[in-house]
């Protein structure tokens, strides 16, 4: 049987007295896109760095492609491609030079490292990339969308042509939140535009991490069912109404938009439940102006489970 693409058991990591990871357990099936989501400081980057052999865990074990990240470091490194958040690319080099360098480091022959250059270097209009013009150093374009897309492209480039490469293009988190860049990884690993309205179609499975622990894991649909299938958005008549209803609903609130005087509440979506809820918070029928019912988004799951704003939406 094929081993899991990645498997972690009881990973812990502390810096002095600060426990960053408090026991991470993960199993990622081959051929799947797996997203690790969580607020700033939740431990996403630390987890990814341990899985990528860049950091040793204090306790616990992890295997990537069946190889131990501690004792079979080189084998793990040959199986993965890491597209980092900050410097997956050498921004002092041009796009073509980056591709060639990584090709050579990935043990491609000199000719092979050079060959796909015409096809891959330069702007990628097919992906809406207005990145650096051919022959330009990337640093000057660091603000443009180019470098990161090129990074993904480059990461993909050294992957063996196997179905499970999608798992490996998962971003090393750090500032990843629902609807974040994981949303662009769906499908063949090619960069896509952000999925509007959150990352509901982003990954096959999602783990929510908070305070160094996995607080929930499953498909997007499963995670949403954990909270509620639907979300009821209430538009209130004024700022006082907003404050009153927010207080009455307390922890049921999963979404707050004070500027639009709008509150989101977890609900089953059933008519009797919505009626009852409206009667409870607004018996006078003077506070709620309008309401809409949506399928819950990952943001709702995230805020309910971690009690925090997503760090990057």
């Amino acid at each position: 049987m094929q081993p899991p693409a990645m498997e972690a058991r009881g990973l812990t990591k502390s810096y002095g007295k600060v426990a960053v990871l408090r026991g991470i357990d993960l199993t990622i099936a081959p051929g799947t896109v797996f997203a690790l989501l969580g607020p700033n400081g939740a431990g996403k980057t630390t987890t990814v760095r341990i899985l990528a052999t860049l950091l040793a865990a204090d306790t616990g074990t992890a295997r990537v492609a069946g190889r131990d990240v501690r004792t079979e470091r080189s084998a793990v490194r040959r199986a993965i491609s890491l597209t980092g958040q900050y410097a997956a690319l050498d921004e002092q080099l041009t796009g073509a030079e980056n591709l060639r360098m990584v090709g050579r480091l990935a043990r491609l022959s000199r000719a092979a490292a050079r060959a796909p250059r015409r096809r891959t270097a330069g702007p990628l209009p097919a992906h809406g990339c207005r990145g650096p013009p051919r022959g330009h150093v990337l640093r000057r374009y660091a603000q443009a969308p180019g470098p990161r897309r090129l990074a993904r492209r480059r990461a993909r480039r050294r992957l063996p042509r196997r179905a499970d490469h999608r798992t490996r293009s998962a971003q090393p988190a750090g500032g990843v939140g629902p609807g974040g860049r994981a949303g662009r990884l769906r499908g063949d690993g090619l960069p896509h535009h952000p999925v509007p309205g959150g990352g509901d179609r982003l990954a096959d499975r999602i783990a929510l991490i908070d305070g160094g622990r996995i607080v929930a894991e499953g498909t997007a649909a499963e995670l949403k069912r954990l909270v509620a299938a639907e979300r009821l958005d209430l538009t209130l008549t004024g700022p006082e109404a907003y404050a009153t209803v927010e207080r009455l609903l307390g922890h049921l609130v999963v979404r707050r938009e004070p500027a639009e005087r709008s509150l989101g509440v977890a609900t089953s979506g059933r008519a009797d439940h919505i009626r009852e809820l409206l009667d409870t918070v607004d018996p006078e029928r003077s506070l709620v102006e309008r309401f809409t019912v949506h399928g819950a988004t990952l943001d709702d799951v995230f805020m309910t489970l971690t009690d925090k704003e997503p760090s990057h939406v």
Binding site: A52, T53, L54, R77, L82, A87, D90, V102
Partner: peptide
């Protein structure tokens, strides 16, 4: 200082 070193290390350089 830059993250490029992680990138190289992950490629087993």
């Amino acid at each position: 200082q830059s993250g490029i070193i992680d990138r190289f290390r992950a490629m087993d350089v």
